[in-house]
Design a protein around this nucleic acid. Structure first.
Length: 388
RNA sequence: CCGAGGGUGGCAGAGUGGUCAAUUGCAACAGACUGUAAAUCUGUCGGGCUUGUCCCUACGGGGGUUCGAAUCCCUCUCCUCGGACCA
């Protein structure tokens, strides 16, 4: 089989259903319709979402039609697949706000010009009870409650809303509307994706094949999620993104390479060998950071970000252009709070106490210290401020 | 509508009259070490200052009992579970 198709079906793929059928479709030369749905639950798309988006791009490069569904309706309902509790319904305003730049963000990965984009409120808001009732045959209550996270909640006596049952149907109906041949989603979406097949059958369509992608760990090792604040966002500035990736746990370096970049697997394998032979993981991580930043910004920006990083952290130099601050009160405690480096005077005091504040490179050990113009104030390792 | 249980710091979750600004875990912040904003270890983690066995604010809202309440009582409110109603 074609090597490209081989990688398409394995890299960043947890499971493919029905794999044989999908392979057949892919080798047939037919142009397939590949669907991905994203709910606007947060204003930022993070790297976890880039896994299916990259997969979408792979398909796009092979000449298939990709379809992006913006879940402006489903976002209001709230999917609980990945949650251990009921997810609150978002209000329309939040969803609208979150939506604003979604396409632009996705456009950092896929070619928007060649992509079909839909908002699912277009059809979901119009369904009537007759239609919905018909769809409710797509799966049974038994199947639903046997899902691990649902049964867990039931056993704990936690509430499971009827609303949550409807969610998979909506997602499935999206597939009907766009006549999807393949749908991509995280492993947590497995149930929903499978339901989609049934909904399609109910509407006399060939059921879609399914590709699930693994969920990626965030910077702290827990699942990447906006609610944990451990995400790298596609809209992060190049320096920020670079720094965040450098703070990634070493053990995830290779995984990030495989899932979040398209660096050839051969080279990734080579990195693995280098590290087992004792290479400093930091150096591999620098490559990773550079790779990812250039994916979402540009190679020159990535190089610049690397330069900044090495300057400030490896060589502990003061960054070149740092934020300036003109204090009213020049007492060190006031400067720290007024500039926002500390949230309260108590905290500012503690920082000084702990030796976390430096002026012009020397530790401030006195609460009554007065800062003069032109000096560089440093809080911790990464926050700098030029006093004017 | 009735009954039961519950609402505690950014989150999770202890505490059921004083020793509680509140155990612990996560997150966050600082320091040490380093290979980096990794890991590990240490410390901090409501606010204020005159840094004290100090003051102020705080355990859903309001009121009360008490020398003293997160803890007891009343009331309001919200959540969950069960029941009633309906079939």
């Amino acid at each position: 089989m074609d090597k490209k198709i081989q990688e398409l079906l394995t890299r960043g793929v947890e499971e493919a259903i029905d794999k044989e059928n999908l392979q057949k479709k892919l080798t047939s030369g037919k142009k397939l319709r590949i669907k991905l749905g994203i709910d606007p639950t947060s204003p930022n798309i993070h790297l976890g979402r880039s896994i299916p988006l990259l997969k979408l791009r792979d398909f796009q490069e092979l000449g298939h039609k990709i379809i992006l569904i913006i879940g402006d309706f489903t976002g209001l309902i709230g999917d609980t697949s990945d949650k251990d509790s009921e997810r609150p319904m978002l209000d329309e305003k939040t969803v609208k706000e979150n939506l604003k730049t979604y396409i632009q963000q996705a456009g950092k990965i896929i070619d928007i010009q060649k992509t079909e984009i839909y908002h699912n409120s277009k059809w979901l808001s119009k369904l009537n009870y007759a239609e919905i009732t018909r769809q409710t045959d797509a799966f049974s209550l038994n199947e639903f409650i046997s899902r691990e996270n649902i049964s867990l909640r039931l056993n704990k006596g936690k509430r499971v809303s009827l609303r949550e049952l409807l969610y998979p149907l909506m997602q499935g109906y999206d597939s009907v509307q766009v006549r999807a041949d393949v749908e991509i989603g995280g492993t947590d979406q497995r149930f929903n994706l499978l339901v989609g097949r049934n909904v399609q059958r109910l509407h006399g369509q060939q059921p879609q094949d399914i590709i699930t992608n693994p969920l990626i760990e965030g910077l702290d090792g827990r699942k990447m999620s906006s609610s944990f604040g451990n995400t790298v966002n596609l809209f992060d500035s190049s320096n920020d993104m670079f720094g965040k990736i450098m703070s990634l746990r070493d053990e995830f370096i290779l995984r990030y390479f495989i899932l979040l970049t398209r660096v050839p697997l051969k080279i990734v394998e080579n990195y693995r060998e280098q590290m087992t032979e004792g290479a400093n993981p930091r150096d591999i991580k620098l490559k990773l950071a550079k790779e990812i930043v250039s994916l979402y910004h540009s190679l020159p920006e990535a190089k610049a970000a690397e330069e900044v990083f090495i300057q400030t952290f490896s060589q502990k130099k003061v960054p070149i252009d740092l934020p300036k601050f003109k204090p009213q009160d020049r007492n060190i405690i006031s400067v720290l709070t007024d500039s926002g480096l500390a949230t309260s005077r108590s905290e500012a005091r503690r920082l000084v106490d702990q030796g976390g504040v430096k002026v012009g490179g020397t530790v401030v050990d006195n609460i009554n210290f007065v800062v003069s113009s032109g000096v560089v104030l440093q809080k911790g390792k990464i926050k700098f401020l030029e006093i004017i």
